[in-house]
Design a protein around this nucleic acid. Structure first.
Lengths: 189, 189
DNA sequence: CGTCACATTGATGCCTCTCAAAGCTTGTGG
DNA sequence: CCACAAGCTTTGAGAGGCATCAATGTGACG
């Protein structure tokens, strides 16, 4: 149920949290107790700017881990807010640090982290694309999940209006198909 | 000389490469032989798009590692091109995988990777800022090194002209100081 | 002293953001 | 079963800002 490296941990290391939409898992400055993995809801990691505006720095999706850096830090560096009702795994910090003694776990975890770095670099590449049309297309090529178009737009840092217009252009060009209202996918697959 | 975790490796795991500007360290699809750390020159990781345009996906700076994901992959997923003459460390893939058996190394390396993920998320936050002025300021706050303004502009995905104009505005506001031509830093530090 | 790369500033146009409104779908309660 | 609300989807009009093209200034280096 939990993604790759953490099924190697003892059961006691993992605890289940039931959360409701809008609930805060941790706040900036809280002492770290571990990292998290969501089962079935998005969790937004946001940082509150000087003028009170919240900026999303990560959109954790079901099946992915977040707050990994907390393992090596004394406090959390952002706020985590559940985007819906659901279940979230909390993985104990001390247990993970202990498990790193096990080569199999250590290797698997490094693999996970290295892949994440690679993915973030890919996202960075996409964000560097100026044209909304090409950015949306690159996002689709990257395999980003287009569930709610609004969330997809936030992931690639466009307004949802610009994203809709870009999607429409891509559909007209035949590069993207739109089988249902609100459903988009690459052509020929 | 090499950043944190890798001084734990045996000397034989690290080899030095002398490179010249424009030289390619590896290409997309090459079988992986290890990861790299540059001593004194930038290395650009670029991916070549369908229309032949090269897109920078990472700007490795002196003292940082790159191509970590190659440890767990059979081939490289981008091209690496040295931006100047200099020396680059190549760290043997097999040696690192072996070193992960050592808990001390494994923990240190996970720490490095987790921090990198955190930094990438921070960069992602910066790239999401629409206003050039605020984006430049956020880049400075993040501690991004403003050596060549042109490179700094590329890092935050702005044209260098927009970056110069934003810097000028920030200087006028007193948020940034410009002690010398081409040198910018935050005020009061 | 000439070349070259970076730094800096100017003018223009396009593209995306912003604000606005209407269509579509789902769910809820009367 | 209908009405209404709420949220996503879609499209429109206008404005501001960044990209783009262009030119000049400046310093380093041979």
């Amino acid at each position: 149920m939990i993604p790759t490296p953490f099924d190697l941990l003892p059961k006691s290391a993992v605890s289940l949290l039931s959360v409701r939409q809008g609930e805060t898992l941790f706040r900036y400055g809280d002492p770290t107790c571990g990292l998290f993995a969501s089962l079935n809801t998005d969790v937004h990691l946001v940082r509150v700017g000087q003028d009170g505006q919240s900026i999303m720095i990560h959109r954790a999706t079901p099946g992915t881990c977040f707050a990994e850096a907390s393992l090596f830090s004394q406090t959390y560096h952002c706020d985590a807010i559940a985007q819906g009702d659901g279940t979230i795994y909390r993985i104990d910090k001390a247990a993970v640090l202990r498990a790193l003694e096990d080569p199999e776990f250590a290797t698997a975890y490094c693999n996970t982290l290295a892949l994440q770095v690679q993915q973030m670099r890919h996202l960075r590449e996409i964000l560097a694309i100026r044209s909304a049309e090409e950015r949306v297309f690159a996002g689709l090529v990257a395999g980003l999940h287009v569930g709610q178009v609004i969330d997809f737009a936030a992931t690639i840092s466009l307004t949802h209006e610009a994203t809709y217009r870009a999607l429409r252009k891509l559909v007209k060009q035949g590069r993207v198909e739109n089988p249902q209202r609100g459903i988009y996918r690459l052509t020929s697959r």
